[in-house]
């Protein structure tokens, strides 16, 4: 597809405006992190100011390492779990259509619909029962319920678009169902797999409620820290900005490295 003529102009103008809308707040957060609290309040903002790295010093000397490690652990296991449980289910739902599977599919989707405030107490009681409180396993389990619905549905909708003939030839050649999934469906579905991975990473990296309620001192994750510093009892704006910036870096790197794989699976085009 090629945008040409006035469409191209529209596209460029739109992109520029959207980038401004999108990045001005971010730029402001980044700049604020180098100011003192008072300097962030002065309007019109001074273009030239003496930057200070006090906020970052506090972040790095302030025991943030553990917090980032926790978040990374949670996010990586979340992605892994969602893929292990999500891909086969999505494949099955996409390829076998009946009243029963459709209901199962919708039931899986509905898992994400319960509002957190309604289930946080029973989830807590459940985890306590299994002696999982204060472990990242508890957080992963809670996240699984939230990640599975959209992982399954996004992958399902993508796999449905893949012509079934590719697999059939493989099956005829004697490949097992599992081999077909791994060697044929997965490579072709890469754009969506990668997208889902990014979405889950972003989600896990930012999830606040369950991460906070289910763990205590040992399990603190980045958003918990950010929320407690952004809460109504705190006022150190540059420190909050600095932590937000630090929090965004890993997610940005992950998205940047991984998103280049959101490109057409070559096989798909060849077979159609």
């Amino acid at each position: 597809m090629k945008l040409e003529g006035r469409w191209k102009l529209f596209g460029i103008v739109f992109l520029v405006i959207y980038l401004l809308f999108s990045l001005v707040p971010i730029a402001w957060v980044v700049i604020s992190s180098f100011k003192t609290h008072y300097q962030t309040l002065i309007m019109p903002p001074k273009l030239f100011f003496k930057p200070t790295v006090t906020a970052y010093k506090n972040v790095f000397l302030g025991g943030m390492g553990k917090v980032f490690l926790n978040s990374t652990k949670v996010a990586v296991i979340d992605i892994f779990a969602a893929m292990v449980f999500g891909i086969p289910a999505a494949y099955s739902l996409a390829r076998f259509k009946s009243g029963v599977t459709e209901n199962i599919g919708f039931w899986l989707l509905s898992l994400r619909m319960a509002p957190a405030f309604g289930v946080v107490i029973p989830v807590y009681i459940l985890m306590r029962r299994f002696h999982l409180l204060d472990t990242t396993v508890a957080v992963n389990a809670a996240h699984l319920l939230i990640n599975i619905p959209f992982a399954v549905w996004l992958l399902k909708s993508y796999i449905e678009e893949i012509p079934v003939e590719i697999e059939e030839s493989a099956l005829v050649d004697g490949a097992t169902r599992f081999q077909t999934l791994v060697h044929i469906i997965l490579p072709v579905s890469m754009p969506m797999v990668v997208t889902v991975a990014i979405l889950i990473f972003i989600f896990s990296w930012n999830e606040l409620f369950f991460a906070f309620v289910l763990t205590s001192s040992e399990g603190m994750t980045v958003p918990v820290l950010v929320a407690s510093l952004a809460g109504s009892m705190t006022f150190n704006w540059p420190l909050l900005c600095a932590i937000s910036v630090c929090s965004m870096v890993p997610a940005f790197v992950f998205a940047f490295v991984v998103q280049r794989h959101i490109v057409r699976g070559l096989t798909l085009g060849a077979i159609r």
């Binding site: 946080v120 906070f212 309620v213 001192s217 918990v224 929320a227 809460g231 109504s232």
Partner: peptide, 11 residues
């Protein structure tokens, strides 16, 4: 263990 007021309440 720190939290903002809202989450501390839940916890």
């Amino acid at each position: 263990v720190w939290g903002d007021e809202s989450t501390v309440r839940m916890k």
